[in-house]
């Protein structure tokens, strides 16, 4: 039977036939009982395929995934603490600044307040040996600006989303406070400096993405 129409049968079922083929295929199907049966069977098959239900894995795969991404994160932290001793993420601040400028085009925050330390300031601050005060201040300003935007958009966002964001930011804030407290006792600890920086980076990133979330429908 398949030799009657070949893969034009599937194209017919899918409504994909060109006009010049459609009439001849319809005429054939009208005359051929085997092809009519096949068309009905294929339509049922396609409907069943579309209706297939997804089912979760039989075992929970999350622990294995968590282990793998956790190892990656540990690797990043270790590398960061070795290689990024005094560096702070200027591109990330710049990215946050771009987002800020886009979002605040009609608002109260102007481009002049965007925080991207000047090269001379960066170079000077890198000589310190710890997360520079200037960099820390720059983070604070960038974070404060993004928090201002987020606060202004609070009513535009889904309330569950806002709650989830605030809970996560609270956790990050706690980590920042702990790192700062530890640094007050040991300002030259390189690990603590790196940890504080990565935590600030993380907060900036969360805020930046949160500020760009679509308005709740």
């Amino acid at each position: 039977m398949d030799g009657h129409l070949g893969d034009r049968l599937s194209a017919y079922v899918d409504g994909d036939l060109a006009a010049e083929d459609l009439a001849s295929v319809e005429a054939h199907v009208a005359d051929c009982g085997e092809c009519r049966d096949a068309v009905q069977d294929l339509r049922r098959l396609v409907a069943r395929a579309r209706a297939l239900e997804d089912r979760p894995p039989e075992t929970d795969l999350w622990p294995g995934i968590a282990e793998r991404i956790g190892a990656q994160r540990a690797g990043v932290v270790a590398v960061a603490s070795r290689r990024r001793r005094f560096a702070f993420s200027v591109p990330q601040l710049a990215a946050a600044g771009v987002a800020l400028s886009l979002l605040s085009a009609g608002g109260a925050i102007t481009a002049t307040r965007l925080v991207t330390p000047r090269p001379a300031e960066v170079a000077a601050s890198l000589e310190g040996g710890v997360l520079p005060l200037l960099a820390a201040a720059s983070y604070d300003v960038a974070i404060r600006d993004l928090e201002t935007i987020l606060a202004a958009r609070r009513d535009d966002l889904d309330s569950a989303t806002v709650r989830a964001l605030e809970a996560s930011i609270a956790v990050i804030d706690q980590a920042i406070a702990q790192a700062r407290a530890a640094l007050a006792r040991d300002p030259n600890d390189l690990y603590l400096n790196g940890h504080l920086q990565s935590t600030l980076d993380r907060k900036l990133d969360v805020l930046r993405r949160a500020a760009m979330l679509p308005r709740a429908s």
Partner: peptide, 16 residues
């Protein structure tokens, strides 16, 4: 929207 928030948080390193 909660999915969008989770994706944003995850991109920031939030494993949960």
């Amino acid at each position: 929207a909660s999915e969008a928030a989770d994706v944003a948080l995850a991109a920031g390193g939030d494993g949960a």
